[in-house]
Structures are given as C-alpha cells and as structure tokens.
Amino acid sequence: MTSAKVMARPGGRPTRLARLSDILPPQWRRSDAFISLLLMAPAFLFIAVMLFASVSTLVLVSFRELTDPGAPVAYTLSNYLALFSPEGDIYRALLLRSLWIPLLTTVAVILVAYPFAYILAFHVHRYKAVWLILVTIPFWISYFLRVASWKVILGENGVVNSFLAWLGVIDHPLEFLLYNMGAVVIVLTHSWLVFAILPIYVSLEKIDRSFLEAAKDLGDGSMQVFLRVTLPLSLPGVFSSAILIFVRAAGDYVTPSLFGGISGTMIGNLIVSLFTAEDNAPMAAAVSVFLMLALVIVVCAVALLYWLWKKWRANL
C-alpha cells in the first residue's frame, strides 16, 4: 500500500496531510501517534506559549537578584533561602494557611454541591436545563461584586445578625462572622459552588441506570446502591472539581483581603504586595513558585491516592 493511498480522501484528491506525508520517513507515515501529535499541535503550541513561557519566565525571575532598574542582571539563590530563613516564617505560615483554607473550602463545596447535583441528576426530570441555568445565575455578575455582597450578609448590621436579633437569639451582633478564616471559607465556598455542581452532575448523569437496577435486583438497599455504585462512579467528577476548586481557592487574594482579617490573610495577598508595594518581583516570583510547587505536590498526592484506590477496587 502506498502512502498516497493511505492518506488520500475517498474522492481521490490528496489532502494537505497527504502531501506532507510524502516527505516523511515511511515509518512515520503509518504512525497513528504521529497523526495524533499533529492534531494536538495547535493546542500544544498554545499551551506552550501561554503556560510554559510564562511559568519559565516566573521561575527565571525568581532567581534574579533584586537590583535597580538598568543595573546588570545577576542570579542568586537568596530568594529561596529567604523562604527558609527565620524571617521567612511569614511565608511558610501563610503557605500552610493557603493550603488549609482551600482544603476546608473544597470539602465544604463538595458537601453542598453533591446532594444538589444528585437530586438534579436523579430526581429532577423536567426542565433540567432551566435548573442548570439557575445554578449559574449568581455567576453572571462580577466576581468582586458577588464576593463583596457577602459583607451585607455577614456584617454587623447584616442579614444574619439582623435576623438572629429579630428572633431574639442574640442581643449583640455576632462579630466573628467577618474578618477571619471562617468568613473566607464561607465566601470561597459560595464562589466555587457552581464549579463543583456541574462536573458532579455530569458524572452522575452519565451513570448507566441499569447498573443501579441490577444492584437493586441483587438485593442492595438504596444506601448500599449509593455507596457501592453511585458514589464510586461519580468520583471522577468529584475529584476533578475538587482539584479545580482547591487550586483556584489557593491562589485567591480578593476574598481574603476583604474578609480575612488577621487570621485569614493568604499567601496571594503577600505575593501581590511583594510585586506592587515592595517592588520586589524576584521575591514575589520565588513565593509564587513556592506556592505552585506546594500545589503540584498536593494535586499529585491526590491523583496518586485516586489511582491507588482505583487499583484496589479493580482487584476486589
């Protein structure tokens, strides 16, 4: 079989790809992998430029010495050493906090989103699209406005306090509603809710209903069906949304700067301040790399756990 025959369209006219293949070594021409690579190239190039180039710039800057503009560029490890010096306690503590707050947020989001997605997937039969659109409505307004309006809810004369006072439960407004870690978690949970509902809904919706019937026929109760069939099959959606939410929440700085107070400041706030007020881009870059590495480690650990879990189930 000649390569022209392989690549030619049914109509007999050679495509661009076919002409290209003529100049390729024969072992490549028949390679599916090569064709896949070719098809992936545009997306890959885009990612290479947008992600790889900017991240490598960031890494490069993080090794730069802090110098006046115009002075010759020098490279140093001092930014990273500063992270582990005694004065670097603030970076380490804020990094831990920036992993802890997103973790709480992710758990809270999944706990709220899962039942919602479950009911939508299994118990709502009409106008599903309408429900899905309704879920996204809070996200039609700007992130900042949506976040800021939580002040109205949690504030000293806010909705929660006024309501509790009206019920007679409290005589002084609750002050712990704002300006601490808890407030940040509440607001972030709301901010990222839709990003969990939709993936979990999709993975629940995809579940073949005959599996559930089969489980029931074999004598499982509803709870057992959920735990042994529905939940495991929906975990891909749960994991993907968890990772998405965790990573995004870890990098947030608007919410902690509005709601964080002293206990809820996150490392994003510090990075912004280093870049702007302190005019110390190298240190800011080093802290950013530090955060990225921590996130990569967490995400890899979660992926590994998921993989082990799948293997364990397969061997069951």
């Binding site: 002293i262 706030n269 302190e278 110390n280």
Partner: peptide, 19 residues
C-alpha cells in the same frame, strides 16, 4: 528610600498577618 520602603512593606505584612 527604596530600602526603607521594602522594610516598611515587610513589617506591614507581618503585622497584618498576625506576626
């Protein structure tokens, strides 16, 4: 002066984050 400014920003961040 830039050097002092950096120290000020660092101090401000420490105070604000509870250090």
């Amino acid at each position: 002066p830039q050097a002092t400014l950096r120290k000020m920003v660092a101090l401000h961040n420490r105070i604000k984050s509870g250090f």
